[in-house]
């Protein structure tokens, strides 16, 4: 027996939107309830654990001073610019490394070295060479966004199904035409997941970036609150970072569904 029936994707029926939102919110809400419960029991002093109400009021307070929106906007802007730059460069370098042997042997060992540099190690260097400004912060985020895209996409390009490549060649495709026929389309799902990882990584690198002498942004708010013992603001910032992560990831999720419908198997 030969198994020549192509693998069909098992069709798992999608839950209705309401149910998905309810399930997604279940754990955060449970955590919130637990938090409130601990506050009610009054076993942890408030300088170690602020109440949910206190955190909410800290947010209202910042909002009234017109600061909350600014912190959120400036951070979001940094993340988006850094993410865009980093992932575009990531795609270009990944194509070079994934498609040419020269690229692979020349660049990939170097980049695996660079990849292992932790984000905090970049901070003083970037501050020194680019200065304490937007550029250095965005550059750091771009570095953070670059690696997931580079790693996932170059791997996907290098591992294109050899049988499909051969079929393309058999029908006279080569070089750029073969790239467009087989390699790029088959790498699209990887590009999407690379972008998704890169966005998450961008938010992580943002906080490190805003250690670079920022006077605005959520990373600044985080360190500032910590230095001033404003644990309510600290909690607020952490919650905001989580929320922004969820929102931007959901946006990429929409893009993902569209691309996978068009290019997925």
């Amino acid at each position: 027996m030969r198994s020549s029936v192509p693998g069909r994707r098992s069709t798992i029926r999608e839950l209705p939107l309401g149910a998905r939102i309810a399930l997604g919110a279940a754990l955060p809400l449970a955590l919130l309830a637990l938090w409130q419960f601990i506050i009610v029991l009054d076993v942890v002093p408030s300088y170690r654990l602020p109440s949910p109400t206190a955190v909410f009021l800290a947010g209202v307070d910042l909002q009234n001073r017109g600061l909350l929106g600014i912190h959120v906007l400036i951070s979001t802007q940094r993340v988006l610019i850094g993410f865009a730059v980093g992932s575009i460069v990531g795609l270009v370098v990944a194509s070079f490394v994934g498609l040419s042997r020269l690229g692979r042997y020349l660049v990939s060992p170097f980049l695996s070295g660079v990849r292992s540099i932790p984000s905090l190690a970049w901070v003083p260097l970037l501050g020194l060479y680019l200065g304490i400004n937007e550029d250095s912060k965005v550059t750091l985020i771009a570095i953070g966004a670059f690696f997931p895209v580079y790693t996932v996409v170059s791997h996907a390009l290098r591992n294109t199904d050899p049988q499909l490549l051969e079929a393309g060649r058999a029908f006279g495709y080569s070089g750029v035409r073969l790239l467009g026929l087989v390699q790029l389309p088959s790498a699209i799902p990887s590009v999407v997941s690379g972008l998704r990882l890169a966005l998450a990584q961008s938010w992580l690198f943002l906080v490190a970036g805003e250690l670079l002498g920022a006077s605005m942004g959520l990373g600044f708010l985080l360190t500032d609150s910590n230095n001033n013992g404003r644990i309510d603001r600290l909690f607020l910032t952490i919650l905001l970072l989580g929320l922004l992560g969820i929102i931007t990831d959901a946006i990429v999720g929409v893009l993902e569904r569209f691309l996978l419908k068009r290019w997925g198997a």
Binding site: S4, P6, Q163, L164, E166, A167, A170, G172, L181
Partner: peptide, 30 residues
Amino acid sequence: IDQRAAVAFQEPRLLPWRSIRRNVEVGLAR
């Protein structure tokens, strides 16, 4: 690779992201 010959492989080797029609199009001469 010789363009005077055309192959149907032992496995179908169709591009999964293309429709059947667009897969057949791949076989057209340049």
